[in-house]
């Protein structure tokens, strides 16, 4: 059997779903808001932080940048400050970079507990400016 033929025959059966394509096409109507993301297991609340983090040179999209970025977050749960990195790690929360360059760093926390309320986020004082915080719940967009 020819591997290449069988490979192509196998993977040609995999397609992006109609629902996914439709969501992506709707991005043209959603520019300026948070793009709706597929609701995943354990994902109840998504938080998108758009902030200008002036941290020396450009922030590259890398594991190092993720760690660097999270160090600049103060996370308050129900009014109590918690260590962002510890909290994310202990609760299995993902931090996904959406965009990172010398001017802005946008990332998203996924998988926050369902019953979590009173989430507040601050950018630490040594950052020169913070632009906005957007909170999304499930698939609905709500810009704060």
């Amino acid at each position: 059997m020819n591997f290449k033929e069988e490979y192509r025959s196998t993977f040609s059966q995999i397609h992006a779903s109609e629902a996914l394509q439709q969501k992506m096409m709707e991005a043209t109507e959603m520019e300026g808001k948070t793009m709706s993301l597929t609701k995943r297991k354990k994902i109840i609340i998504s938080i998108l932080i758009a902030a200008a983090l002036v941290v020396g040179s450009a922030i590259a999209v890398s594991a190092g940048a993720l760690n660097q970025a999270v160090e600049h977050i103060k996370l308050f749960i129900n009014g109590e400050e918690v260590s962002a990195s510890d909290y994310l790690s202990e609760n299995g929360i993902e931090l996904i970079v959406e965009k990172a360059d010398e001017e802005a760093c946008q990332f998203e926390l996924r998988g926050l507990p369902e019953d979590l309320e009173g989430v507040e986020i601050e950018i630490q004082e040594d950052d020169e400016q913070s632009i906005s915080v957007a909170i999304t719940e499930g698939d609905d967009e709500k810009i704060g």
Binding site: L20, K23, M24, E31, M35, K41, E98
Partner: peptide
């Protein structure tokens, strides 16, 4: 599938921008 769909959306969002 779920991660692949999320990543695919991120890629096309970057394309749109």
């Amino acid at each position: 599938r779920s991660d692949a769909e999320d990543l695919t959306q991120n890629v096309f969002l970057k394309l749109y921008r």
